[in-house]
């Protein structure tokens, strides 16, 4: 709870801090900096070592699920998809059927209900996280490459607007911390630029793997805003903007973060 109080203090002191600190230009994230670079050496080693990175437990689980026949048609993911290298780096992407942007978990869900004719998995449930981790892990090391798709433009613009919109009782926007104050500290914690190149990620605070939506929800609850339900379009729009904002960063999924 202490960090919440600190956050409250930061919000209260907001105008003064803004006066004392020279504001960086809006395009401060010209060369995105991955959160990994600001972690302790021990955590970096934990992320890099597949036998110490707890996220690999979910990758292993996801691989098993990927090869398991499911649903009414009794088909496994692996029956259609041989390799998904680089796929996660291109999500969220446009989905023709729903005429909306779709993130990776949404795509897995879609494949499951449409092609396997199986019951949908719970968002943020272990099986969907495991499958996401297995698919995202196949893009490790590849640069985030959001699709150049004009149909995504309106959602992308909404995503950026959401990123810059002040929200919650503390009246803070994502940009106020992760752009204007990236690299400074919130209490003892370093404020990262908030890039989405390591999801799903293992957070030591969660002691579990979690999706980008869970992370977004975390921040929204932190500024005492109402967080939408998992899977909401609002999250996907922010994800879309974050992918654009961090384009070029190497995918680190499953990343480890404090």
């Amino acid at each position: 709870m202490r960090w919440l109080l600190l956050l409250a203090a930061l919000a209260a002191a907001g105008p003064r801090i803004a006066a004392a600190q020279p504001r960086m230009p809006p395009q401060a994230v010209a060369q995105p900096r991955s959160g990994t670079q600001d972690m302790s050496r021990e955590l970096q080693a934990m992320q890099a070592d597949d036998s110490a990175n707890p996220g690999m437990l979910w990758v292993q689980e996801g691989e098993a699920l990927f090869h398991r026949a499911e649903g009414r048609v009794q088909k496994a993911c692996a029956d259609c998809h041989a390799s998904l290298t680089g796929v996660a780096a291109r999500y969220p992407a446009w989905d023709d059927r729903s005429a909306a942007p779709m993130d990776l978990a949404g795509r897995i869900q879609h494949c499951r209900t449409e092609h396997q004719q199986a019951t949908p998995l719970a968002r943020e449930g272990e099986p969907l996280l495991a499958l996401s981790a297995f698919v995202a892990g196949q893009s490790r090391g590849l640069p985030l490459a959001p699709p150049e798709d004009s149909r995504l433009a309106p959602a992308l613009a909404r995503g950026e607007a959401l990123f810059r919109q002040r929200r919650g009782q503390l009246n803070l926007s994502c940009a106020q911390c992760h752009e204007d104050r990236a690299g400074l500290r919130l209490g003892s914690a370093l404020i990262p630029e908030g890039h989405a190149n390591g999801y799903p990620q293992y957070r030591l605070e969660w002691q579990a793997l979690g999706s980008l939506q869970r992370r977004l929800r975390n921040c929204m609850v932190g500024v005492r805003a109402t967080a939408p339900a998992f899977g909401a379009a609002e999250y996907v729009e922010i994800e879309l903007y974050l992918a654009r904002r961090g384009a070029g960063l190497a995918v680190e999924a499953p990343a480890v973060r404090p």
Partner: peptide
């Protein structure tokens, strides 16, 4: 539970080998 085990498959006699284990468990 899923387990990650890391140890060498072979070693010289008398060598000290490092073993690393990770297991999925909630530890409630």
């Amino acid at each position: 539970a899923r387990v990650l085990l890391n140890l060498p498959r072979s070693a010289a006699k008398g060598a000290v080998i490092e073993i690393r284990t990770l297991i999925m468990h909630p530890m409630e």
